[in-house]
Write a protein that binds this DNA or RNA. Structure first.
Length: 819
DNA sequence: GCAGGCGACTCAGAAAACTCAAT
DNA sequence: AATTGAGTTTTCTGAGTCGCCTG
């Protein structure tokens, strides 16, 4: 069983805790009066929490993780000035860019792949001029009569049609969308609710209709083949696909699946009259085998066939991959409608395994520009509705049948729209550094407030800030039982005097948050003790007076747009920047990357971003251990060679470590290693012999005789015998090598060994930490770009292609930029 | 005035797809 | 040179956050 260690087991408390009891106890002073009124604790400047992680490997960096950056108002001014200048400069150069690119003859298209010829390329397009903030515009209006939503707000104004460049030129190459440097323009978005002026697209891509299985492929019930209806067969196939996974071993998953399967069977009964009543008697393996065979077939296709299939697929998807937004061609993200399947809820989701239905065009609402052509729904169908709301960024939406949640089709992360949001997110969290001092001062003072409400709010704020907890909205009975700050329950927090707190709970995605004996502000400790006090039980909420809205309203009082999640971004970015500051600007790129990744890792730990340890991890580590020993073996040889020729003792004075013997290198292992190496060489010789003979045959020359091979092999045997003998005697043959050569070789070997060790331990340390999430969502990319420039590390080494696209807006950051 | 839920967006790890190095 | 398999990147879609509206 590959029980997911990371996720908390669903077992223990299967009963959902009761809903938050409101106002347990009273707000009276007496309630709080058991707190000996501490002689004003000066707000501890350094409330460095000792973060201890579950895994020992995390211990080392634990205390570095907690953000320690204090309000830096004064200090940062200079860097901000630099910044302004920089922006100014960019602006100028970009304006030039704009002019030249619109006036100059069109650039040759970067690519002439057919897939770039979307419908949109035929339309005239122009770079949009910046959205004007003052014009007025109309509210969205639905085309169909079944309008269900009313506009929430009246977007302010509108701008002139942007399909033309200022000089009237028309942009004609669709794949030049990258040229638009929105980040270099003033203002940006955010002062209005309007997100675009014109929007054209072709709708969404639907998954193919269900293709029934071949006649002979059938599930079995009670040992007998069953003739399922196509409808039921499709659902059976969904289950067959999860056979062998953790899902198929999950009771809830199976129960939910079977319930929905039976309901489909009621509507579309088996053609042979079989009554399917018992899940245990169902055998989906014949379908699974068929699916596996199909998969194999696909894998076995030749390169050409695969390429062709891909091209065909691209061809039919092509109309949906891009849209025209404010006249620019932009990539759409999830243009494929989610195919039907079994709902794969995470953790102990009560609805996991339920049937996720196929989405019909009638369920979809299309959002598109007012003057744009409304895309055709698939033949014989209609869209549910069409609207023209430019205060939102989605192109299509539908309601999903499991949780009744809305799903949206958005632009890709590399698009202008997403880029703007992303940048403004980081700008907002960057602004927090000017307010963080106030915020901390305020909640630290309130930790001793006589009013329970205020004290809880302050304590929650402390946890959000210092531990990077999520806000923790209330959740329903029909969701997995996970919590965040405001929804923490007594059972999640253990106290150990004088001021150590252990947190153990399931957070987002049912990822376990476990930190033992964190040192907190003594007042926070006292507060938590009070909040946990009788009559509260383990299932009762710690923070019974507050919820996320209260907390966020409080934060908003300090700074526009400040909410709990901003602290995560702020702390992640600031931590990363501080960590990078420590990295040495010397050594190879590989070494620099290693320290970069270490900084990244510390941020990931701060945010509790985890991943499953890969199945092959242990094997990989074993292999690395072997390769390490092989290196040590070579070092041993070098060391003993050097010992034979080192006539002056200066070598050892300069390099005292050259005398050290290799640890952990047993004779047995070396025996086996040499045998191994010998066998490998024998194999190589045999193969070479074959190859050589083949060549000779082809050239019509006489082949070598088997005896020739025997002779060669004999030599190999002899050679290794000698090696073993010399090694056992501790006197390997030095040959013609002199002391200088050996010293250099030894030094190189030492370096290699060290690099290898660092690499291996790094790999082990990072086995259960997911670096991607923080890199993608929390760390301001400008920190990374600035570091790369200052340290002369190519930015492609740290950002893969999609991230480079996503972060184009950050690529011009100067090396001295500060978050 | 506020609880509750709606709607739109960001953030999250798993899984699929791809790449690249070792054989 | 082709294969394979481990590692990396991209895709997928579920799970959060948070502001706003409604009653």
């Amino acid at each position: 069983m590959t029980a997911n260690l990371k996720r908390g087991a669903s077992t223990e408390n299967d009963k959902k805790p009761k809903k938050a009891k409101q106002n347990i106890g009273s707000d009276s002073e007496s309630e709080l009066s058991d707190v000996p009124d501490e002689p004003q604790q000066p707000p501890q400047v350094e409330q460095v929490t000792q973060v201890k992680q579950e895994s020992p490997s995390n211990l080392k960096h634990a205390s570095d993780v907690t953000p320690k950056v204090e309000n830096t108002n004064g200090l940062e001014i200079s860097s901000d000035l630099v910044n302004l200048k920089e922006i100014e400069n960019n602006k100028v150069s970009n304006d030039q860019d704009l002019n030249t690119s619109t006036v100059s003859p069109k650039k040759p298209s970067k690519s002439n792949k057919p897939s770039d010829d979307s419908d949109f390329d035929e339309k005239p397009k122009a770079r949009s001029s910046r959205r004007s903030t003052s014009a007025k515009k109309e509210k969205k209006e639905n085309v169909t009569d079944d309008e269900k939503k009313t506009p929430k707000k009246t977007p302010k104004n509108s701008s002139q049609p942007p399909n033309q460049t200022p000089n009237g030129d028309v942009k004609d190459e669709g794949d030049e969308e990258d040229d638009y440097k929105w980040w270099a323009e003033q203002g940006g978005f955010g002062d209005g609710t309007e997100r675009w002026s014109t929007l054209e697209h072709n709708g969404v891509f639907f998954p193919p209709e269900y293709i029934p299985l071949p006649k002979q492929v059938k599930m079995k019930y009670d040992g007998k083949l069953v003739e399922l209806s196509n409808e039921a067969e499709e659902v059976a196939g969904f289950y067959a696909a999860v056979l062998g996974s953790d899902h198929a071993a999950d009771e809830t998953f199976n129960k939910n699946f079977f319930q929905d399967f039976q309901s489909v069977l009621r509507d579309y009964p088996p053609l042979d009259g079989t009554k399917i009543k018992d899940f245990e008697k169902c055998d989906f393996s014949p379908i699974r085998e068929h699916l596996d065979i199909e998969k194999e077939k696909k894998k076995a296709m030749t390169k050409d066939e695969k390429k062709r299939t891909k091209e065909q697929r691209d061809e039919i998807e092509n109309p949906f991959t891009h849209c025209l937004l404010d006249g620019r061609k932009e990539k759409v993200g999830n243009f494929r409608i989610e195919p039907p399947s079994l709902f794969r809820g995470r953790g102990a989701h009560p609805k996991k395994g339920k049937l996720k239905l196929r989405i019909k065009p009638e369920q979809i609402t299309i959002n598109i520009g007012k003057d744009a052509k409304i895309p055709d729904a698939p033949p014989g169908t209609n869209w549910g509705s069409v609207q023209h709301d430019n205060t939102v960024t989605w192109l299509a939406t539908w309601k999903e049948n499991i949780n009744g949640a809305y799903k949206y089709v958005y632009l890709a992360p590399g698009s202008t729209l997403k880029g703007q949001s992303d940048m403004s997110k980081f700008e907002k969290s960057r602004e927090l550094k000017h307010y963080i001092g106030n915020v901390r001062e305020s909640y630290e003072a309130d930790l001793q407030n006589k009013v329970m409400f205020d004290r809880q709010r302050a304590t929650a704020a402390y946890l959000v800030d210092r531990l990077a907890l999520r806000a923790g909205n209330e959740k329903g009975e029909d969701e997995a039982d996970t919590v965040g700050c405001c929804s923490l329950r007594c059972e999640h927090v253990m106290l150990r005097p004088p001021n150590l707190v252990t947190f153990d709970f399931l957070g987002k995605d049912s990822v376990r948050f476990y930190q033992e004996d964190i040192k907190v502000d003594p007042q926070v400790f006292k507060n938590l003790r009070i909040f946990k006090k009788e009559p509260k039980g383990p299932q009762d909420p710690i923070f019974d007076r507050i919820h996320t809205t209260v907390l966020n309203n409080y934060f908003r009082g300090f700074m526009k747009g400040l909410s709990a999640k901003v602290f995560r971004t702020y702390n992640a970015s600031i931590t990363f920047q501080e960590e990078l500051k420590q990295t040495p600007n010397e050594g190879t790129v590989a070494e620099k990357l290693l320290s970069f990744n270490r900084a990244n890792r510390n941020v990931a730990i701060l945010c509790n971003h985890q991943k499953n340890v890969s199945k092959s991890h242990d094997a990989t580590m074993d292999k690395m251990g072997d390769r390490l020993k092989a290196l040590k073996y070579q070092r041993r040889k070098l060391r003993q060679m050097l010992a034979q020729v080192a006539d002056d003792k200066k070598v050892y004075k300069d390099h005292p470590s050259f005398k050290d013997e290799e640890s952990d290198l047993e004779d047995e292992w070396m025996d086996a290693h040499e045998e191994n190496e010998r066998d490998k060489e024998v194999e190589r010789q045999k193969k070479k012999f074959e190859r050589d003979n083949e060549k000779l045959r082809n050239e019509d020359q006489k082949e070598m005789k088997p005896e020739d091979l025997g002779e060669r092999l004999q030599e190999v045997e002899e050679k290794w015998k000698t090696v073993t003998k010399e090694r056992r005697a501790g006197k390997p043959d030095v040959g013609k090598k002199n002391q200088t050569q050996l010293t250099t070789a030894m030094q190189k070997m030492e370096d290699r060994l060290e690099a290898f060790r660092v690499n291996a331990s790094n790999k082990d340390e990072v086995k259960d930490v997911s670096l991607g999430t923080s890199k993608i969502n929390y760390i301001d990319p400008r920190i990374t770009v600035a570091w790369c420039k200052a340290y002369e590390v190519p930015v492609e080494k740290v950002f893969a292609k999609t991230l480079l696209t996503k972060f184009t807006w950050a690529m011009e950051t100067s090396p001295d930029w500060k978050f």
